[in-house]
Amino acid sequence: MAGKHTRPRVATCSLAGCFGCHMSLLDIDERIFELAELVEFARSPIVDKKRFDRRVDIGLIEGGCCNEENVATLREFRRHCEILVSIGDCATAGGVPALRNDIPLAECLAEAYVGGPTVHNPGGRIPDDPELPLLLDKVYPAHEVVRIDYFLPGCPPSAEALWQTLVALLEGRPLELPYELIKYD
């Protein structure tokens, strides 16, 4: 990974995801020390850094886009990252959040906040504070919103798959994962 800075920079985010892919990355166990030597974490919950302050070599995207904030974040990652990698089934396919995709949004909200069997909401009001990001009509995989360079499915992708992917990209090698590491579950 050619660059003027000493260590390649890696940014990560979880959009409409569950942070399970980030957890799986932590499952590389003691190799986390090696990773800390190999890369510098830029905008990422791993180091609690919330903004980009310079260009980043690799961006890892967990989750698809379920609201306007996800879209804004994903576009920000695309602007700042040389390489974007979709990590996990939510980023590559919409995943569990996309289970709502064949149900009209109004019906989803009504079920969640008004008519659902465990809902207590006498006013019947659906949350509409302007602070809340607007939901999209559907949940979109990341590559349906911005250009994505690499894809690593899995729910989550195994620690081994994440490690091998990162190392290959950092060393500028072609991403060729063995059969056992590409899984959709």
């Binding site: 979709s86 590559t92 396919a93 919409g94 996309a98 995709n101 064949d102 559907k138 995989p141 590559h143 349906e144 690499y150 894809f151 690593l152 499915p153 059969y179 590409i182 899984k183 959709y184």
Partner: peptide
């Protein structure tokens, strides 16, 4: 899909 090494479809999901 595994055998063909498919990581994601190139077409938009229809849901």
């Amino acid at each position: 899909a595994y055998r063909f090494g498919i990581t994601h479809p190139r077409f938009p999901y229809m849901f």
